[in-house]
Design a protein around this nucleic acid. Structure first.
Lengths: 165, 165
DNA sequence: GGAATATAGTTTCAATTGTAACCATTGGTT
DNA sequence: AACCAATGGTTACAATTGAAACTATATTCC
């Protein structure tokens, strides 16, 4: 009797159970990359805009006169990425920068007229891409997606936080 | 009468309607980055493994004796990324490489015993991270997520295809 | 008032990644 | 057989990104 029926150390043979194309983090990554490439290509082609630059413009359109760190908070970018994006936008005169009178380290950023003009053209394009992506889902599934993303983001943040204690 | 009721060119004033933190591509990107950082940090810390290397190992564990291009197809990586990942895995002797007799360009890749040993430890860890992430969702929501990701991925691919006609 | 400490933002340098060019080999065509 | 296009894979170079160091200003606290 070579195969005892009760539990002994019959370890599974080096481990299926993990199939990459069923693995959620992998699928998220591939989906995000695909979507980003499509959209980034369009921004770049049409407006010479990188994704970081687009993000900065999007928050400044809605919240003028933020400082760079405030932009960083609202875009989930680190301050170096924000600094570089802003540098590019300043070069192209799409953003105006002043400095706070009371605290001369703080910058005060807003879209220039040219920046506004660009933004009014990029934003609808962005929304069209989003709509096209979501058109694969029913309205009800779209609401569900929204909810799931919120929950997953919360959970991911908590996993991150528990890591770097 | 300054505001005619019928349609004239009353364009919306430079465009809210887009709020970055409600924009699905942005949210996908932030979620993916957060998840990837948590997991990549663990792989690196515990096994000195990059995400591309982990992906290559995952497919070789399941499908031994693939060539590099076949690995690339199954990991959604381009062939340069695969080449580099394999180079690293060869250096650490976690992967063995032979060459096809009939076609001497084709490599034949498989995990070494050491590679298998690493894999049997990484895979459960990966699954634990996935489970922890998904634990924020009910089982029913988990199934829904699976379905939504599949649909969205299909749609994203079709958007990509229609771009580079 | 003057150290020490913290914050805003930029610069620098190294590591990662993407694109294109590049061998080597194979398959097809004449 | 000799050429030419296609394929597998690597190399080289440029662009992007990340981490740490740095400058300048502001704040704290003795």
């Amino acid at each position: 009797m070579t195969g005892p029926k009760e539990k002994v150390a019959d370890l599974p043979p080096a481990g299926p159970a993990l199939q990459l194309d069923r693995f959620i983090p992998y699928r998220l990554s591939v989906l995000t990359n695909t979507v980003s490439m499509v959209i980034a290509g369009a921004y770049e082609r049409e407006f010479g805009l990188s994704i970081p630059q687009w993000r900065v413009m999007a928050v400044l359109a809605r919240y003028p006169d933020l400082s760079a760190v405030e932009v960083a908070e609202r875009t989930a970018m680190d301050k170096v990425a924000v600094s570089r994006a802003i540098q590019g936008l300043l070069d192209e005169k799409r953003v105006l920068r002043a400095f706070d009178k009371g605290d001369r380290r703080r910058s005060i950023l807003r879209l220039s007229a040219a920046g506004q003009a660009v933004y009014t053209r990029v934003a609808p394009m962005a929304l069209r891409y989003e709509a096209e992506l979501l058109s694969a889902l029913s309205p009800s599934d779209q609401r569900t997606l929204d909810r799931l993303l919120t929950r997953l983001m919360e959970q991911a943040k908590s996993m991150q936080a528990s890591r770097d204690v």
